[in-house]
């Protein structure tokens, strides 16, 4: 497993897309600060938390696409034949990818926060008023929700085995079209059977949408629990799927 992690980090480090994905949110944050500073001057009242939140949507989309591309990369290049066959437990391959990407998302979040903080400090003289605990709760819940949605995307990507299909799914999922459609249909189906259940309410997507900086403790725990279920469920399904299917 350690060897796989070393392999994945090395392969990621050698890809241009990794650096683009890592730096793009930070660059966007800097642009937001620059434009605001230019338009409203040094007293714009923009805090680094505002900049961080404003980039969240973009970072989700960015990672969804990168994640799908990364999962397909080894298969597309055929390199998976050099790796998968040598593993005693095939599903380690998926676990390793998930771990590496989780670390990568964390680094990206931290880089975005640091860039926003430094940018605000330089452009406006202060990083704005914020409560550290509230910010870190928001940061942590957002991160776990992101990993939960990544696990869902991982499962779909492995299931479809098609780059165009997987990316389309990822984009439509992140922008909200698919969750609305899928959960809406499920609820409609239940309604036809005189039953009622709000699937949307327990989706990671809904939790990401509803997440605000001043989230209550109860809401935060609910979001973390739902994300945890997604991680376990789709992580497990992905491992089983990869293990049971032929690699090539």
């Amino acid at each position: 497993m350690l060897g796989l992690l070393r392999f994945d980090f090395f392969a990621m480090r050698k890809k241009m897309a990794t650096f683009v994905c890592l730096l793009l949110p930070a660059i966007c944050a800097l642009l937001v600060i620059l434009v605001t500073s230019y338009a409203e001057g040094r007293h714009a009242g923009l805090s680094f938390v505002d900049v961080f939140i404003s980039n969240m949507e973009m970072i989700r989309l960015n990672f969804a696409i990168y994640f799908v591309l990364l999962l397909h990369h080894d298969r597309k290049k055929g390199y998976i034949k050099n790796v998968s066959g040598t593993l005693k437990r095939k599903y380690f391959y998926i676990l390793s990818k998930a771990i590496v990407l989780s670390i990568f998302v964390l680094i990206s979040f931290l880089l975005l926060a640091l860039t926003a903080w430094l940018g605000c400090l330089l452009a406006f003289g202060s990083c704005g008023a914020f409560e550290a605990f509230t910010f870190w709760v928001y940061f942590g819940v957002n991160y776990i929700l992101m990993i939960g949605s990544m696990c869902l995307l991982m499962f779909v990507t492995l299931l479809l085995r098609n780059i165009a299909g997987s990316i389309t799914f990822a984009v439509l999922y992140i922008v909200g079209l698919l969750p609305e459609l899928i959960y809406g249909l499920l609820e409609l189906l239940l309604a036809k059977m005189d039953m009622e259940f709000n699937f949307f309410n327990i989706s990671v997507y809904r939790q990401m949408r509803a997440l605000t900086i001043g989230i209550s403790g109860q809401e935060a725990w609910k979001a973390v629990t739902i994300a945890g279920v997604y991680i376990l469920l789709f992580g497990l399904l992905s491992c089983v799927l990869f293990h049971k299917r032929d690699t090539v």
């Binding site: 060897g3 796989l4 070393r6 392999f7 090395f10 392969a11 050698k14 890809k15 241009m16 080894d74 290049k77 055929g78 390199y79 998976i80 034949k81 050099n82 790796v83 066959g85 040598t86 593993l87 005693k88 090539v248």
Partner: peptide, 29 residues
């Protein structure tokens, strides 16, 4: 299984990497 080397159908390689880096990536495993 880790003591089997294979070349099935076409070679699997990262096209943007050099030969040495391709080997290094697998060696990390």
């Amino acid at each position: 299984p880790d003591q089997i080397g294979n070349l099935i159908e076409t070679p699997g390689f990262y096209d943007k990497m050099s030969a040495a880096d391709n080997l290094r990536a697998k060696a990390r495993l």
